[in-house]
């Protein structure tokens, strides 16, 4: 699967919340798009990731 354009190998069946924790993201500072659809924070635990998935994880940065 792909996170922010980088390929990752999945270690078995993994939920979105597990995957984000493994990758070290701070959940309160991010938003997630799975295959182009926003996943609400409340749905992270019940969303499971498969090999073909594309994940975008975004946060705020400085900007004008």
């Amino acid at each position: 699967m792909t996170i922010n354009g980088e390929k990752k190998e999945l270690s078995g069946r993994v939920s979105l919340s597990e995957l984000l924790a493994q990758e070290g993201f701070r959940l309160e500072r991010i938003a997630v798009e799975l295959n182009g659809e926003i996943v609400p924070k409340a749905a992270y635990a019940d969303t499971f990731i498969s090999e073909a998935d594309k994940l975008e994880v975004v946060s705020f940065v400085g900007g004008g």
Binding site: E23, G24, F25, R29, V57, V58, S59, F60, V61, G63
Partner: peptide
């Protein structure tokens, strides 16, 4: 204050917010 949205880095440290 204005902010932009970009791909997050995994450390999450130094987040502007």
């Amino acid at each position: 204050i204005t902010l932009a949205v970009r791909r997050a880095n995994s450390s999450g440290e130094g987040n502007i917010v």
